[in-house]
Simulated assay, not measured.
Amino acid sequence: MTAAGEGPWLDAAAGRLVRPYTVSDGRTRPTTALDLVSQVMATGVVPLGYLGPEYSEALDLCRAPVSVAELAAHLKLPAAVTKVLLSDLVDCGALTTKPPAFRHSPTDRSLLEAVLDGLRRQL
């Protein structure tokens, strides 16, 4: 018998051996509209039943407001899978969402150029 976190689903060198979409039961469409810059935060409500380690990890990361994109990076999951997980947590009342607040239009040329410059500096 293997300990939790060991066995055929986890490899020390390769990482997760389970396809990301198995985490969301193959679902790719969230029930809640979420953008990559939408903010989510835990409400303190505990979901009924066990949802899985990714859900628990997401809830832990949502103690303070955090964006969907940031959560996807921390969880090492595709954004589509992360949105489904977060949507499930919103549906059960464990998370609340807040749409992004833009001081400028999200398609403002100066804003997009500033983001591009920041990305170029990171490379």
Rank of each mutant, 00 (worst) to 15 (best):
G5K: 01
E6C: 10
E6I: 04
W9E: 09
W9D: 12
A13R: 14
A13P: 05
V18N: 07
V18R: 06
R19C: 06
R19Q: 15
P20V: 04
Y21V: 07
T22I: 00
T28Y: 01
R29M: 10
L34W: 09
L34Y: 05
D35C: 08
L36Q: 11
M41T: 12
A42D: 00
A42S: 15
T43G: 06
G44I: 04
G44N: 05
G44P: 06
V45L: 11
V46C: 04
P47C: 02
L48C: 00
L51F: 01
L51A: 07
L51D: 02
G52C: 09
P53G: 13
E57F: 00
E57M: 11
E57I: 03
A58F: 07
L59K: 06
L59H: 06
L59Q: 05
L61M: 10
P65G: 06
A69C: 03
E70A: 11
E70K: 11
A72Q: 03
H74T: 00
L77A: 03
L77E: 09
P78D: 02
A79R: 11
A80S: 11
A80D: 15
T82A: 11
K83W: 01
V84H: 07
L86W: 00
L86G: 04
S87W: 06
D88A: 09
C92S: 01
C92Q: 10
G93Q: 05
G93P: 11
A94S: 15
L95D: 00
L95I: 00
K98R: 15
P100W: 10
A101T: 12
A101M: 10
P106K: 07
P106W: 08
R109C: 01
R109N: 08
R109I: 12
R109T: 13
L111G: 02
L112R: 14
A114W: 12
L116I: 02
G118D: 07
L119P: 04
R120I: 11
R120E: 15
R120L: 13
R120P: 02
R121A: 15
Q122N: 05
L123P: 00
